[in-house]
Design a protein around this nucleic acid. Structure first.
Lengths: 242, 242
DNA sequence: ATCCTGAATCCTGGATACAAAAATTACGAG
DNA sequence: CTCGTAATTTTTGTATCCAGGATTCAGGAT
C-alpha cells in the first residue's frame, strides 16, 4: 500500500503509486464499510469528502462508485448524488429469491467439482460456527455464516458466480443479522450447513442444490416471521447489526 | 461541450442538454456493440480513440469501462488497457451453468407475478419467432430469442435479476448464435418457449422453473455437441454471428 | 536472416483545475 | 409561518498534465 490511503489525513506524502489500481482498493474498502454497517443505509456519499478521506482524487473514486452501483450496494440519483442502498421489504424478498437460485447452483457446482481443500475449509468454518452457538455469539456466527456461503461460491469455481458475492454478503451480513438472527434459527442453520456439506462431499449435486435452496428458503421464512411479528414499526428499514 | 454523442463530429452543437448521465449512455452503446459483434472478442479498446469517437472526454468513458468490466463484457489487464472479453470453452460452460439458475428463477418469479401484459408480450415474441422458422431466418430468430429470455426476466420484476441481463444477452446473442444455432434446435426451442409460457400463464411456478432450466440445459447440450463435433478447429473462439 | 538491446513513443492510471447545471440551503419579505 | 429568491453546495463533465509501465522500432551483434 504505497499511498496512505487508509489514513484520514496524510498531507504532502507524494509517494509513488501502488502497483494495483486504486479503483479496486476503494471498491474493496467501501464494500466492507457497507457490509459492516460503518456506512449506514441511506447515508449520502460525497465525492470530495471521501476522496479527501482516502487521500485520492475523484477520478478513481467515481469509477468505484459505478462498480458499487452495479453491485447494488449504492444507489445513484442523477444530479443528486450517491447514497448507500437501503433495504425495504420488497428489496429483501427480491434478494432472497435470487439468492435461493444463486446458492443452489453454487452448491450444485461445488458438489460436482469435489475440491477437497475447499470442502475441508468449509468443514472448519462449520466447526467455528458451532463454537459460536454454545456461548451464543451473534457476531462470530454472522462472520462464519458469511464465510460458509461465500466459501461454497468459491468452491464452485465459476467466474460468473463470483460477481454474485456482494449480493450474498449483503443479505448474509446486513439483512439477515438485522432481521432473522435468533439462536434457534442459528442452531438449525448450522445443522443445515452440515447436510449441505455432506451432500457436496458425497458429490450428490442435485441433493446439494436442493438442500442449499431449502436452507435459503427457511432463512427467508424466518425473516418473514420476524417482519410480520414486528409489524407496524416501520417495517424493514435495513439497519446493520451492531 | 455537450457534443452530440453518437456523431463522430458535430461542431457547433453546444446547446445539448443531457438529462441523463453520459456513463449510462456510453455503457448502453458499448454493450450493444459487444452483443452485436461490432466490437469483436479480444479487441482492444483505447480510451482516447473511443472517447473521440463518442465526442466525450475520458472521464465518463472510464466509468463506463468499470461497469462493463463488472458485467464481464470486457477484461482489464492492468496498465495495458481493456479488451472485449472472449469466450473459451470453460467460460461458456460456466455461463450456461449460471444461466440455468438465473433463467429458472426468472421463470418461477414471472409465473408467480402473473403480469398479464408482460406475458402477452412474450406470446407475441413467440409468434414472431415462429415466423422466423419457416423461411429460416437466423438473425430474426436470435433477436426474438433474446427478447423472449430478457422478457421473462422483466416479467419477474425483481431488481436483483435485471443486472443479470448482460449475462443472458451475452450467451443468447453471442455464444449461442455462434455455436449452437441450428434450425432443428430452433424449432425445438420455440416449442419449449411455448411450454414455459403456458406454465407461467397457468401460474405454475415450479413447472415454469423446471421447464426453463431444462430449456437452457438442452441449449447447452446442443452446444456441447457442436463443440465436440467441430473438435480441433480451435474450439470455442467466440465469434459473433454475421 | 535472426536475435538482442536500448531508446523513442504510446497509453493507462491518476491528479488537478475549471465550468455548467441542478439541488440545497439561507434569508428576507409578507 | 410561509413563500420566493439569492447564495452556496454538489454533481457531472471537460480539458490538461504527469509519471511510469508497455510497445515498438531501429540498429547492431551473431
Amino acid at each position: 500500500m504505497r499511498s496512505a490511503f487508509m489514513s484520514t489525513s496524510d498531507p504532502g506524502a507524494h509517494e509513488w503509486r501502488s502497483p494495483i489500481r486504486l479503483v479496486d482498493e476503494v471498491v474493496k474498502v467501501l464494500r466492507e464499510r457497507i457490509y459492516s454497517g460503518a456506512l449506514r443505509p441511506g447515508e449520502v456519499l460525497r465525492q470530495e469528502q471521501i476522496a479527501a478521506d482516502f487521500g485520492i482524487s475523484r477520478t478513481p473514486l467515481r469509477e468505484a462508485f459505478r462498480v458499487l452501483e452495479r453491485d447494488g450496494l449504492i444507489r445513484n440519483e442523477p444530479r443528486r448524488g450517491v447514497r448507500v442502498a437501503s433495504a425495504d421489504l420488497r428489496r429483501l424478498k427480491d434478494a432472497y429469491d435470487v439468492r435461493e437460485a444463486i446458492d443452489g447452483v453454487a452448491a450444485r457446482l461445488a458438489a460436482g467439482r469435489r475440491d477437497a481443500a475447499a470442502l475441508d475449509r468449509l468443514a472448519a468454518v462449520i466447526e467455528a460456527q458451532r463454537a459460536a452457538l454454545e456461548p451464543w455469539d451473534p457476531i462470530a456466527y454472522t462472520r462464519t455464516n458469511v464465510e460458509f456461503h461465500v466459501g461454497i461460491m468459491e468452491a464452485a469455481h465459476n467466474e460468473f458466480l463470483t460477481p454474485q458475492v456482494p449480493l450474498v454478503r449483503m443479505t448474509a451480513q446486513v439483512f439477515t443479522p438485522a432481521l432473522a438472527l435468533s439462536v434457534e434459527r442459528a442452531v438449525r442453520a448450522v445443522a443445515e450447513h452440515e447436510e449441505i456439506l455432506a451432500a457436496m462431499r458425497a458429490g450428490d449435486a442435485a441433493r446439494a442444490e436442493e438442500l442449499a435452496r431449502a436452507h435459503i428458503r427457511r432463512t427467508r421464512l424466518s425473516l418473514d416471521a420476524r417482519i410480520s411479528a414486528a409489524d407496524g414499526d416501520g417495517g424493514a428499514e435495513g439497519k446493520a447489526a451492531p
